[in-house]
């Protein structure tokens, strides 16, 4: 009975794996279908008497991250900059206490950012594949009410359950075709310059330039870095955190590189920073082969 030889990701025996006692990382996350109530008992109930309310309540009592929408509006969109700044300053304090040298502090910040970067590539790619205009709340509501009207009376209950349990529609419905993978260094850097920067800081970065001296070097310019704006300049570059994010994204997109930051103040922008991306030689070699 309890032999776990094959464990198909979509049919979890909830008796042996109750709701949310965590996932077993030897098996990986176990998905439950987002539109079906989790316990088999309630499926039967909602199937026979169409009790969408019981289904909904059973569903909400067992929240699972896999049922959540990837829609950016599905969650709180913002927290205060102050809340982030305090977390960030504590992160830096901790790194400072645990380190013996400036470069070690920066390495730790970089590592924290890297963890974020490797998670962002797929998510942002996915989101930027959604056709523009989809998912503004009103249109998604309209979409759903239309389906429930058109559907036959048998499936109406299930559709109701679906609309009530999911605040937002699945983003996948707004995608007609996925955004193509970025293959050229310039493309992926533009993705960072625009999509990633807007996601992180609410605006595109101020400039993206190619080094005139070295083939593998590009520079992203931010004249007022958001995360370190309250930190008076020291010999520690706190924006190594952002370097880590960029490097994480580029690494997971198969553009191995090294990202560093240099502060290049200008009269009106005292905190102006230049992020220097140095691709590894293999990236250039691959480019040469493609051309």
């Amino acid at each position: 009975m309890k032999q776990k030889i094959i464990n198909p990701s979509t049919s979890v025996n909830t008796a042996t794996h109750p709701g949310s006692t965590g996932y077993d990382y030897t098996m990986g996350p176990q998905q439950t279908l987002p539109d079906l109530p989790v316990s088999s008992g309630t499926i039967a109930a909602s199937g026979t008497n169409g009790g969408s309310s019981t289904a909904a309540s059973a569903h909400t009592s067992l929240p699972s991250v896999y049922n959540g929408s990837l829609h950016p509006h599905a969650h709180n969109q913002h927290v205060s900059l102050a809340a982030f700044a305090f977390l960030f300053q504590e992160l830096i304090s901790q790194a400072r206490n645990a380190s013996k040298s400036v470069s070690e502090i920066e390495m730790r910040l970089h590592r924290n950012g890297y963890h974020i970067g490797i998670r962002l590539l797929e998510l942002l790619n996915f989101r930027s594949s959604v056709s523009p205009g989809f998912g503004s709340t009103s249109s998604s509501r309209a979409f759903f009410s239309k389906t429930s009207i058109n559907s036959s009376s048998n499936t109406l209950a299930l559709n109701n359950a679906l609309t009530t349990t999911q605040d937002e529609p699945s983003l996948a419905q707004g995608i007609s075709h996925m955004k193509r993978r970025d293959l050229k260094p310039v493309e992926i850097l533009q993705f960072i310059h625009s999509t990633v920067w807007t996601y992180l800081f609410g605006r595109v970065s101020d400039d993206l330039v190619k080094s005139s001296e070295r083939d593998n070097e590009y520079m992203l310019v931010d004249s007022a870095p958001m995360l370190s704006q309250f930190i008076s300049s020291t010999n520690v570059q706190c924006d190594f955190f952002v370097c880590g994010i960029i490097e994480g994204i580029l690494d997971s997109a198969s553009f191995p590189c090294n990202v560093t930051i240099h502060s290049v103040p200008e009269p009106n922008f005292q905190q102006r920073a230049v992020f220097v991306v140095r691709f590894e030689q293999q990236v250039l070699e691959r480019e040469a082969l493609r051309a």
Binding site: P72, H75, N76, Q77, H78, V79, S80, L81, A82, A83, F84, L87, I116, Y199, L200, F201, G202, M226
Partner: peptide, 8 residues
């Protein structure tokens, strides 16, 4: 002033 909650 606000910031992206997901970044947080």
């Amino acid at each position: 002033a606000k910031i992206n909650a997901e970044l947080f």
